[in-house]
Amino acid sequence: MTQTGQIAYEARGLTKRFGAIVACEDISIEFRRGEITAIIGDNGAGKSTLIKMLTGATRPDEGTLMLKGAEVKFSSPLDARLQGVEGVYQELALAPNLDVTSNVFLGRELSKWGVLDSRRMAQRARAEVATLNINLPGVSGIPIGSMSGGQRQCVAIARSAYWAKDIMLLDEPTAALGLRESQAVLDLIKQIRSRGLAVGIISHDLPHVAEIADRVVVLRHGRKVAELAHQKLTVPQLMDLIINGNPSPSIGD
C-alpha cells in the first residue's frame, strides 16, 4: 500500500555537460507520492535538460536515479516508461490522425488471440476519461487533430496517467493554452495527484505553480539553488527565488 509522502523517485547529483557547457550540475531532487513538485527557473536554468535525464531522453554524465529506493538506468524514454516513469513533453507525441483510444494505447495495444482488441481498449480509454472528468467529444472515431489544444493536452496527460506506475513528469503542461483550457489541465493534474502518484512539473507560469505545487525546486544557471515546501507562496516570492536564487526572509520552509 502506497502512502502520501513516500519517495517514489529520486535523483542524486545529476550532472550533464555539452562540451564546455554545464547544463546541469550536481542536482538532487525527490518526488513524493501524492505530491506535486514544481521545477522553476529562468530560460537556460537547466529545467529541460533535467527532465530529459529524469525520463530517459538524455543520459546524465554523473549522478544516480533511484526508483522506489533502487538504482535505475534508462537507455531511452521507452525504457523509462516500462519501468514506471512517464513523461509528457510539450510536443505531446500524439498521432493527430488517430482517435483517443488509439493514442492512449499507441505502441502498447491490447490483443486477444493475436487480434487487436479494439473493444476492450475503447472501454478502458472511456473509463479513464470518465474517471478523470475530461471533456472530450468521444474516444473512438474522432481524430485527435480535430480537437482543441487543451483537449489534446488532456489526452496526453490521461495516457501517461493510465500507464504510470510511480511518477509523471510534465514539461510546461499549460503552455499556449487559454485560461479555461489551462484550468482544465490543472484540475486534471490535481486529480492525478490524488491517486497517489508522484507528479513533477516544469512551468514558467508562476500563478499555476502557486496554485497546485506542494513543493517548489528552483534552478539557476544549471544548479539547484532553493527547495521549499509550499506554504502559500505568492508569485512575487517565486519571482524572487528565480531572480535572486535565495528565499527572502518572508518565505517559510
Rank of each mutant, 00 (worst) to 15 (best):
Q3W: 09
I7L: 08
A11D: 07
G13M: 06
L14G: 03
T15L: 03
T15G: 01
K16V: 01
K16L: 08
F18H: 04
F18R: 00
G19H: 11
I21M: 12
V22S: 09
I27K: 05
I29G: 02
I29Q: 08
E30V: 00
R32S: 08
G34Y: 11
E35I: 01
T37L: 11
A38C: 06
I39P: 01
G46N: 03
T49L: 12
I51G: 00
M53N: 02
M53G: 06
R59L: 11
D61T: 03
D61Y: 02
M66W: 12
K68H: 12
P77M: 08
P77T: 09
D79P: 13
R81Q: 09
L82E: 13
Q83A: 03
Q90Y: 08
V100A: 12
T101N: 05
V104M: 15
L106M: 09
E109S: 06
E109I: 10
K112D: 00
V115S: 01
A122S: 15
A125T: 09
R126P: 09
A130R: 12
N133S: 04
N133V: 06
L136A: 02
G138D: 09
V139W: 13
S140M: 14
G141F: 07
G141S: 06
I144E: 04
G149P: 08
G150F: 04
Q153M: 14
C154K: 12
V155C: 07
V155T: 03
Y162R: 05
W163K: 06
I167Q: 06
L169Q: 00
E172W: 09
L177C: 10
L186F: 13
D187L: 05
L188N: 10
I189Y: 03
Q191M: 15
I192Q: 05
R193F: 01
S194T: 14
S194F: 07
R195K: 15
I201F: 05
I201V: 11
S203F: 10
H208M: 13
I212T: 01
R215Q: 02
V216H: 10
R220D: 12
E227C: 07
L228H: 02
A229Q: 06
H230S: 10
L233G: 04
L233A: 09
L238E: 01
M239L: 12
D240M: 08
I242E: 04
